[in-house]
Nucleic acid binder design. Sequence first.
DNA 1: TTGTAGGCGTTATCAT
DNA 2: ATGATAACGCCTACAA
Lengths: 342, 342
Amino acid sequence: MARKSGKTTIHDIAFELRLNASTVSRALANKPVVSQKTRNLVLAKAKELNYRPNHMAAALRRGRSDILGVIVPAIDRAFFASVIRGIEEKAGEQGYHIMVCQSYDSSMRERTMVETLRRVQVDGILISVAKDGKTDTAFYRKLIDGGLPVQFFDNIPEGIEAPAVVIDDEKGAFDATTHLIKSGYRRIAHLCGPQHLHIYRDRYLGYTRALKEAGLPVEDELIVEIGSHFDTSPEIFSRLWERPNPPDAIFSASDYSAAVGLKAALKLGLRVPEDLAFMGFSNEPFTEIITPQLSSVDQQTLEMGRRSAERLMAALNNNSTPAKTEPKLVLLPKVIVRESSS
Amino acid sequence: MARKSGKTTIHDIAFELRLNASTVSRALANKPVVSQKTRNLVLAKAKELNYRPNHMAAALRRGRSDILGVIVPAIDRAFFASVIRGIEEKAGEQGYHIMVCQSYDSSMRERTMVETLRRVQVDGILISVAKDGKTDTAFYRKLIDGGLPVQFFDNIPEGIEAPAVVIDDEKGAFDATTHLIKSGYRRIAHLCGPQHLHIYRDRYLGYTRALKEAGLPVEDELIVEIGSHFDTSPEIFSRLWERPNPPDAIFSASDYSAAVGLKAALKLGLRVPEDLAFMGFSNEPFTEIITPQLSSVDQQTLEMGRRSAERLMAALNNNSTPAKTEPKLVLLPKVIVRESSS
DNA sequence: TTGTAGGCGTTATCAT
DNA sequence: ATGATAACGCCTACAA
């Protein structure tokens, strides 16, 4: 039994062994100085008393918490859930814990969360920036200059030198569009996301570059902007289809919009992919499940999480800003060809 | 400027104001004793020095961390991602943080995670138990008796009195099956999950009860066990279909298996739901997106997360074991009728 | 209303 | 190889 009623501390162990707390601390920390005999005694007594180290006390003393903060717009979006999994995996391997927050795509809330995480003394923060277009670049610049290790991923603040892990949206879109062209499609429409976000702009650029490199015209009337990632109004599709010269393929910046379009097409009696091909973006879990399966662009979410965590932790160990030399790591997306564009 | 180079502490504020740290502490904590004048001074200086409270230090002193541990099999499964969102929402509202861990459905790892979370001094733990059938009931009994507030949700350990939030799987299955019966289907097959898990056993029981109450026979050959939640081998479906007297509806304990079966049915030229109806379980995001849309049973995931968090925090505030009086909260699932069973 | 002092549990720096 | 002591930053009796 420990002396007091509460939890066992190193003092309890020391007391019972007629040792000093510091010796116990050293023994537990496996410092080479302590004698083998003492170490065994301590270890045995620790087990006997059901000792459980108080991580917070140690953290306070050492000045590091071994906790990483993670801020994403929403935990329950497949993309982020997967990235977080990757982060947790890698963090766990190195004895770090993660504390997850949601910004709900509000930049203001995001800043609040950053402050909150700092109070909790996280050693560093991983952020996928809120997509409300109100990112305060100055805030993040100050943050980084202030010495807090920050690692961005996915959607990153523009005009700022900061470590980041992103995927090459431009190349993903380029590859996807090129695949459609090589499959024989010529009038390829594009459902593009809000252009104030670089990820959607890049997808748009990849799309147009693919057309140009293939000698195909870029036609404005084949390009439709969708409200958001989750814009699923069938009207978008019909607007395209009711044109005199409709497209023979659709490359959407979002799997959701692609799926809705696909459904609308089937309802009209069109054959997919013979009459109309579809290509989405994100490789959402449902793409394999719908009929026909939706071709898409995989964003390497697990990898993104893993690499982000690795880089942040490396920076913490080197006691330097993350990846000062090569601040931005660009992952290569992968076109997954399925039934909708075979 | 703070005295030393590092972060500002209440001592820095006190020093500059020729006050004592305890006064600063009280002012910051909004204790009524401090004079308005002093409070204002402190607040102003705090802002000026960019003071940020060290939550860990306070936690160490007060003996509570305001951190809740969460253990789930996998963060990136839609079900858990959604529950976690609910937890984070509610926790955040009351100033709690969450620390998320994955058990990867290994009971051993789960126990390790519990230990790890305790070291970090979480105030309580929320757990959805690993589904490898190796749950160590004694471990959890000791845990709870030891005074650590634990709140289970979803998959809970059997044979143990512990606070839990679950959904009524039996009723969900009953309602789903009854819906099929009322829609005119008579030979309803069931794809059931591993029966050593109570959630799947309950679904099976609900299914059989519905048949019995409707005066329909329970036919063993219409019941097929699938390997896991994600078992998606089309053979399962064909095995059912190749019988002399095939089913006219399928109630699956998993949306994934239902979707695969649905796809196989369409490939065979069957009309859904005219020739064969489908009903899944879980209301996965993809159910709305596939064609035809899959009917399913919603599990109130967000609500489950919210209520779990609420109950745990209530227990923490009352300084009592969570919901001693009504340990198990049962949420009601909801049948969502879509095209596959209209 | 404010100051003093002690301690939360650990670790790091001395000294022995 | 071990012990004594101080400190991490905060909170809270108790005293003034």
